[in-house]
Design a protein around this nucleic acid. Sequence first.
DNA 1: GGCGCATGTTAACGACTGTTAACAGCACTG
DNA 2: CAGTGCTGTTAACAGTCGTTAACATGCGCC
Lengths: 202, 202
Amino acid sequence: MPTPPSPVENPRRQQIRREAARLFAARGFLGVGVDEIGRAVGISGPGLYRHFAGKDAMLADLLVGISERLLDEGRRRVDEAADARAALDALLQGHIDFALDESALITLHDRELLHLPDEERHRVRSLQRQYVELWVTVAGDSFPGLGKDARAAVHAVFGLLNSTPHSAAGQSGDAADRTAMAALLHRLALGALGAAAQAAEA
Amino acid sequence: MPTPPSPVENPRRQQIRREAARLFAARGFLGVGVDEIGRAVGISGPGLYRHFAGKDAMLADLLVGISERLLDEGRRRVDEAADARAALDALLQGHIDFALDESALITLHDRELLHLPDEERHRVRSLQRQYVELWVTVAGDSFPGLGKDARAAVHAVFGLLNSTPHSAAGQSGDAADRTAMAALLHRLALGALGAAAQAAEA
DNA sequence: GGCGCATGTTAACGACTGTTAACAGCACTG
DNA sequence: CAGTGCTGTTAACAGTCGTTAACATGCGCC
């Protein structure tokens, strides 16, 4: 059974991750063949099975990695924040950076979840749920007026922040564009939460 | 060549549309076989080819239909509005109703576009572009402070409004929940646009 | 009644896909 | 030098999928 080795952090594995993410985002998980992924990393087809147990395992690796990274980074930022409002700003900045820098992963994150095997899908869903709860708590503390709408509002804000792949303004490579976009997303998100909280108070 | 008949509006065609939309949203275009769609409408497999030229044609019919419906309805609402702000409210209400009532179609609308044949994909993209332009104009007139950020802000608002399938709060069937969600989305969107416009003015 | 047409059915095809088997080169170690 | 493990290759398999062909049924219309 010479299936999945993972000695340290194999650079070939990371290369496969990157190309697979790009291809999955462009044509969908089921729309990409293993031969194509192999060709993208310079080996051909079944050679990938020396690095991943299967095509499913590549997607699982990507999605679990994203979810863990978002949650870990989010918790770290909240822990380091002085108050709720600072925590919210830090969460926003972290998520926006991720959305702008890794738009392919953001796309996969909620598009290909249904193609995961049961176990990994539940794991990713659990991580996503914890990430949402983190946000709901912080958003609720920052905007007490949100009340019971906090969860739905947070979901909506995720939709807002994750819209950047559709905007196609993150790929320009222009650093000024990127920071302007980040600032705009930050304002949009805060404005949305603030308005929802304010209206609920009335 | 007994391929695509369309006498008037065949009820069977509409039934196929509905089930295909549901299945595509649940498992993805490539993840659903024609036999499965056939089974969902009570006929089996290749019988679908009496109503659609192929599987691609079903997806194309759905996506073109959505895009046309959004654009036509949006234009109608803008034309009937008294001023820019009323037009924006009407656009919001229309899009929110659509997102809440047809969450499967909203999901497909930006998820499966890449699986369309070239011609239909360009057609859908063109319709989407016109819909975005309609919003950009109305949003820019309602919030002059948006300036050059109007397009990106509109994309972000679409992401916000289209997040309802992830919220899973539209499926409850509870009419009170639905109107509450609609009102919340409306406030979130206006708050986002208002905050972006206000910050840009400073 | 017979003809045509719309709407199904089943059988079969050709292409493609994920995965495995069998084998080979190469680096490193005793 | 022999041996071992890692990484890659090509060939082949088994299954699935969209599509077509050939055939059946039933309704409406001269």
